[in-house]
Structures are given as C-alpha cells and as structure tokens.
Amino acid sequence: MSSALTDLFPLPIVQAPMAGGVSVPHLAQAVSEAGGLGFLAAGYKTADGMYQEIKQLRGLTTKPFGVNLFMPQPEHPGASTGSTAAAGAAPASAAAVDVYAHQLAGEAAWYETELGDPDSGRDDGYDAKLAVLLDNPVPVVSFHFGVPGREVLESLRRAGTFTLVTATTPDEALAVQQAGADAVIAQGIEAGGHQGTHRDNPETDGTGIGLLSLVAQIRETVSLPIVAAGGIMRGSQIAAALAAGASAAQLGTAFLATPESGANPLHKQALTNPLFVRTELTRAFSGRPARGLVNRFMREHGPYAPAAYPEVHHLTSPLRKKAAASGDAQGMALWAGQGHRMARELPAGQLVEVLAAELDAAATALSSRPAGGARR
C-alpha cells in the first residue's frame, strides 16, 4: 500500500459505501475496528441525515472512516453542474420518462401504491452535504457519478480529508488525477450496484472493462494510488488486484450479507438463493446502469427503462419500498456483484480478519513460486 493509504488504515480492505440503508454506522465501525476502512453512504440521505450517521459512527469508533457522495446530474445535455460530472451525457426526454411511468402503472396497482415524482431533485443535496463535510471534516470522502471541481477537492484537502473518485475507464481515471483527487477507485464491470461512469451513455451499456484489466490500464495511465472494486469476495482476489497495481481493494457484496449490514433480509438471502442465479446491468430501477440479481422486475422492465437518472430512481422508489414491505424479492432492487454466490454470513469484523488471512496466504504462495513461474 502507498504511505498515504497506510496512514489511514492498516489493511488493504475497504468496505464499499452502499446507499439505500446498507452501509450503516455499525457496519462501518466493525470494518474500521478490524483494520479496514469502513464507509458511510450519503446517497439518498439529507445533509442532516448524513451528519447524524457521522455523529453516531464517531461515538462508536475513533478509527478512520469514509463518507461517499453522489455527484449532481445535469438538467439537460451539456448542462453545467460546476464539475465534470456526466459531461456530454444525453438524458432521456421527459416524454420517455412518461412512457416508462405508463408501463409501470400495473406495478403501482399490484403493490397498491402511487408512483414517485420523477422531478424530486437531481443534486442529492450535494452542496449542503459538502458544507457539512467541510465544517465537520471526516478522514475520507469519495465521489461517485463524476469528478468534483478542483476547488472542492482542494477545500477538502485543506480540511485534512483524503479524497477518492470512482473511474470506470483509464480516461476517467486521468480526469480524476487532473482534478486533484488523492486516489482513484477503479470500478470493474463485475461490481454490484451502480456503475460510477462519468458520462451516462446508453451506447456503452455492458461494455465496461473487467477489474484486473482496468487496474493494469489505469496503473499505466495515472500515478495515483488505486483502490480496486468489482466482484471481489476472497482474499486471493485482493492479492490479484494488488499484484495488478492496486493499493487496496473495495468490497461491497461481500459485506452486504454480514449481520451488521442494513440490507433487507430478503436481499441478504437472495445472494445465495438458487432462485437468483445471475446478475445483469439494468436501468430498470434507477435509469442508470447498475448490476443486480435478475428478478421479475428486471426482466419485465429492464429492456424498456430510459436513460434517466435520477428520474427513474424517484419514479420506482415507492414500488421498491412496497415490494420489500410485502416480502416480494421479485420487485426489489437486489444489487449484487458477480461474485454474490461466494457471500459469507460472517460478522463484518471477522470477515475482515478472514480476508486478511486469505490475502496473506495468497501472497505467501505467490512469493514462494519459483522465478519464471509456470508449472510444466
């Protein structure tokens, strides 16, 4: 690990910030106390809700932790958000969102609820959350869906905060370095949840780069420390990411099944339920490509969902909540990475210890191999 990251947490294990109530303070606390880096997810929360979780976590641990922010999305093609977030994106028209709402009318009737208001907001309270994080600095802040402006990153640095930004291509990683972030999160196509693409281009759906190849390419493009993310479930995979050039690995689905996770029990069970055999990238639930377990909702609506985030997210929110409340996993957004079948129901702190032991064993095996390597 690079010295900057080593100063923050001793083990090269980062718990991914999973929005929607999964990355709760007790999960972040357990990971940080075990030597990794725990994360809170500010996405879909108010600024005060984020602050209250930070306050709670500080009452649970004195170890470093992180907070993740979603970048605001532009109103129309080429709109400025004061950053490079989603520059050049081509969001779907309001008419396309209306057509999708009409298609979802049957779901609303089935779950006996109204569809959400697609115009509920585009910036996720970004400015207010930044103000809180500058007034009450935390050790680490990461960004998803784009790159913050240089002035934002410099302000956080002056406050003593280490910054990371997600990238899904070498070009995006270069933009992260040019903006002045401290490190880049290389998110491979295997990752569960939303792809952190800077430009949401429907023509590139499903064309992402596999994690190990992405890490190697980014390593040759930028000089920043790299945190590898995407489908990692075992310490041996962490070792592979480190060998490819990463300084640490970020795991989401691996921690989703832990008892400390705030995920719905149905979501946790679905990770290893034989009914859910594979994952796909879909826009069905949010209007942005995100990887989840294939269920009825995804099969029926994924092919028709427009590229309209966060409008579709707001539109389907009541449906997802009613599906969860009624115990219907077929109507929920079951975000999961490609390694979901390898999920282990261990306490989060114990999982960190197991991953660290597996990493050590893999590193030892690798170092003991003869030079020149391959067995014949």
Rank of each mutant, 00 (worst) to 15 (best):
M1R: 13
S2H: 14
L8V: 05
F9A: 14
F9K: 12
A19N: 02
V31G: 14
S32N: 11
S32T: 12
G35F: 05
F39T: 07
L40K: 06
A41H: 12
A41S: 15
G59H: 03
G59C: 09
T61A: 14
P64F: 00
G66W: 00
P77V: 03
P77L: 01
S80K: 11
S80V: 11
S80I: 10
A86Y: 07
G88D: 04
G88T: 04
A92T: 10
A92V: 07
A95P: 06
V97L: 02
V97I: 05
A101R: 06
Y111F: 06
E112M: 03
E112I: 01
L115C: 08
R122M: 04
G125K: 04
K129S: 08
V132M: 15
L134D: 09
P137M: 11
V138E: 03
S142L: 08
H144N: 14
T166R: 07
A173K: 13
L174E: 15
V176S: 11
V176I: 13
D182L: 13
D182H: 15
A183H: 14
V184P: 10
A186M: 09
Q187N: 12
G188L: 14
A191N: 14
Q195T: 13
T197E: 13
N201V: 05
E203S: 11
E203W: 03
E203P: 04
T204M: 09
T204D: 09
G206V: 06
S213L: 10
V215W: 09
V215G: 07
V215Y: 09
I218T: 00
R219H: 13
E220C: 00
I226A: 07
V227E: 08
V227T: 11
A229N: 13
G230N: 02
I232H: 02
M233F: 12
Q237P: 07
A239L: 10
A246M: 02
S247C: 15
Q250A: 08
P259E: 08
P259K: 06
S261T: 07
G262M: 11
A263R: 05
A263N: 04
A263M: 06
P265M: 06
P265T: 02
Q269D: 13
T272E: 07
T279Y: 04
E280K: 10
A284Q: 01
S286N: 03
R288I: 00
A290E: 05
G292R: 04
L293N: 04
L293P: 03
V294Q: 03
R296I: 01
E300H: 01
A305N: 05
A307F: 03
H313M: 05
T316D: 00
S317P: 02
P318N: 06
A324D: 02
A329V: 01
A333T: 06
G349K: 01
L351C: 05
A361D: 15
A365N: 14
S367A: 12
S367G: 10
R369Y: 11
P370M: 07
A371T: 00
A374I: 04
R376G: 08
